[in-house]
Design a protein around this nucleic acid. Structure first.
Length: 583
RNA sequence: UGGGGAGUCGCCAAGUCGGUUAAGGCAACGGAUUUUGAUUCCGUCAUGCGUAGGUUCGAAUCCUACCUCCCCAGCCA
């Protein structure tokens, strides 16, 4: 129940922060209390109230997944631990693919994980005016120009990885002309693709990001926040660093693929310092390796394909690695935070075994879930010497915490047991039911298997047994029966119907992205629906309730069908050393 | 064959300025407890840090060369 906030792991980013804080304990960062360039509050001595600021900057063009969770836990976790703040900022500079539906879902998912941004919720689009005016500064200072080459021509001029690029013929356009065209771009006088604004850096740089990157393009497209106000939109590299600086971010943490963008990040901000728009210290970008997990894909393109081509039932399909998916699967937010703590943060490419995540899920569910009896594949058990009408057995709700009480399980002559708990010819070491063997019906009586009947295919149909009246759990002397096996059971006339979704890995191989076509690696049995029987108390469950079905695993109530039958999703199985041993 | 990164136990991952025994977690294996073959608890688990040389009394940590893997040529982020 009390999931201790796990200790922050040591990682290279925390080491950097520790050193920074040690070497520069006085907090000299000025901050107007809201996003603003220093030039607008010059002379003011306002200090930031917190020592560090991080940010989680999703683009609202898709659903958050476990990879984002790593970044969220890192950014919010560090902010919490250093008594700083983590901003939630939507990087919404491309109106073509973004919308507010995604914004809402992202907000919900971050909240669901349990993080709070303390009113520091921003949008890059909030900064469009600043971004535009700073672009004018770049042009005025001869650090940017309007290029009128077509996109193909720009591509041709860019050169390749091994050969330098060539200057655009428009590179030395006069400042006044640049300003004039940019103004007209903004007014909507041009079609898309006619002009772009580019930084004037170095077309021969070995780093392609420095070969005069485009910072503004024309998009005649309505924006989810700014509507029709703009038809020129800034690009990521230009926007991100400036947004960080406006928000007084100290550590801008991103994934490895942005490593060679860092010089550009610094270049832009240093120019803005020269123009006296920002002051030092500037935000610093640090990169860490993104999350990879076995048996799943995390690339946005592939996830979209799974949904749009209906390989799964939507973004919140419990097999999806989206946060809405794992929530519906029953993974608690604590388990995801635990997982993120365990995997750590580094710069090495890695692929983490999915079972590590499952282990975290079990760990966080074990203490909190009440236990229930559910039979997946029933087989009838008849107690030949039982002649009572019925009686009740006390079953504890949780084995470790008696204070959580008990429930009454009806017991009668005719029961259901799990068909896998009875074997005619058991392998060595099997200590469940087989002819002549003794087991305890958990919370009930000890029984001895006397005989069985088979159907026309030779499969066991009914198992017969006798019980020992003085063996009832909880009664004096019942412990004199020493049994190895304890199996669960249900009184056949009291059991209720339920439907269970047995989920398994979505992909068969550890690295589906390594396949020629990842779709061929889809596990056809990733979802199996079974009609099961459950104990009577399960009739009262509500959507989202989570249980451990004893000896099976953890389950979450998904819904109630029209006919009143509850549906449960399997979150994760219990660890099973017996199955493992017999594989 | 340009630039930027990474290589420490099966999977992650610590390892500030070189200093006696290379953290920790997960897995695995062994054992104890257990009315879930669950949980819990104990114990074991790298003469070795991509490879080869070198510097040093001493190197995963410094130097040199090499090998392997990842990222970058969107008017995406």
């Amino acid at each position: 129940m009390s999931n201790e906030p796990s200790k922050p792991g040591i990682n290279f980013i925390r080491n950097i922060i520790d050193n920074d804080l040690k070497n520069n304990p006085q907090n000299n960062r000025k901050w107007a209390g809201k996003p603003m360039p220093h030039s607008e509050f010059k002379g003011s001595t306002e200090q930031d109230t917190v020592a560090i600021r991080t940010r989680f900057p999703p683009e609202p063009n898709g659903y958050l997944h476990l990879g984002h969770a790593k970044s969220i836990c890192l950014n919010f976790g560090i902010a919490n631990d250093y008594h700083g703040l983590c901003h939630l900022r939507f990087d919404d500079t491309n109106p073509v693919s973004e919308n507010s539906e995604y914004v809402e879902s992202i907000i919900n998912s971050v909240r669901w994980l349990g993080f709070d941004w303390d009113n520091q919720l921003f949008y890059a689009s909030d900064y469009f005016d600043y971004l535009y005016s700073f672009a004018i500064k770049f042009i005025e200072n001869g650090d940017a120009y309007v290029d009128s080459l077509s996109s193909d021509e720009i591509k041709d001029h860019r050169g390749t990885l091994t050969s330098p690029g060539k200057n655009s013929p428009f590179r030395n356009r006069a400042v006044a002309e640049n300003l004039d065209i940019f103004e007209k771009m903004r007014k909507g006088n041009f079609k898309e693709e006619c002009h772009v604004v580019r930084l004037k850096i170095d077309m021969e740089s070995p780093n392609i990001n420095l070969r005069d990157p485009v910072i503004y393009r024309i998009r005649h497209h309505s924006h989810h926040k700014t509507g029709k106000n703009w038809c020129v939109y800034p690009m990521y590299d230009y926007t991100h660093c400036i947004s960080d600086a406006l928000e007084n971010i100290t550590y801008s943490l991103c994934t490895l693929e942005f490593e060679d963008h860092r010089v550009l990040y610094d270049w832009i901000l240093e120019k803005l310092v020269k123009y006296q728009i920002f002051e030092n210290p500037l935000p610093k970008q640090y990169e860490f390796s993104r999350l990879n997990l076995t048996h799943i894909v995390l690339s946005k393109r592939k996830l979209v394909q799974l949904v749009s081509e209906k390989y799964v039932d939507g973004w919140d399909d419990p097999r999806m690695p989206t946060l809405v998916g794992v929530k519906r699967r029953g993974y608690p937010p604590e388990s995801i935070k635990l997982f993120c703590d365990r995997i750590g943060v580094s710069k090495a490419d890695s692929i983490i075994d999915y079972s590590l995540l499952e282990d975290c899920v079990r760990e966080s569910l074990n203490n909190s879930c009440y236990r229930k009896f559910v039979i997946f594949n029933p087989i009838k058990l008849i107690i030949e010497n039982y002649n009572e009408a019925e009686e009740f057995c006390d079953a504890s709700n949780h084995p470790k915490t008696p204070e959580n009480g008990t429930r009454k399980l009806p017991f009668s002559k005719e029961l259901w047991i799990e068909s896998t708990d009875f074997l005619v010819n058991p392998p060595k070491g099997f200590f469940r039911l087989f002819p002549g063997n003794i087991v305890r019906l958990k919370f009930g009586y000890v029984i001895e298997c006397t005989r069985y009947e088979i159907d026309e295919n030779g499969n066991p149909l009914t198992v017969y047994c006798r019980y020992f009246p003085d063996s009832k759990s909880g009664t004096a002397g019942s412990n004199k029966y020493k049994v190895k096996g304890n199996i669960h059971w249900l009184s056949s006339k009291h059991a209720i119907k339920c439907e269970i979704n047995l989920f398994d890995r979505l992909f068969k191989s550890a690295n589906p992205s390594g396949c020629d076509n990842f779709l061929t690696d889809l596990n056809q049995n990733s979802k199996v629906i079974v009609n099961a029987l459950g104990e009577p108390s399960l009739a009262q469950t509500r959507k989202g309730d989570q249980f451990q079905f004893e000896r099976h695993g953890y389950f979450i109530m998904d819904d109630t069908k029209n006919n009143g039958i509850p549906v449960f999703n399997r979150t994760v199985t219990l660890r099973d050393t017996w199955v493992k041993k017999n594989k």
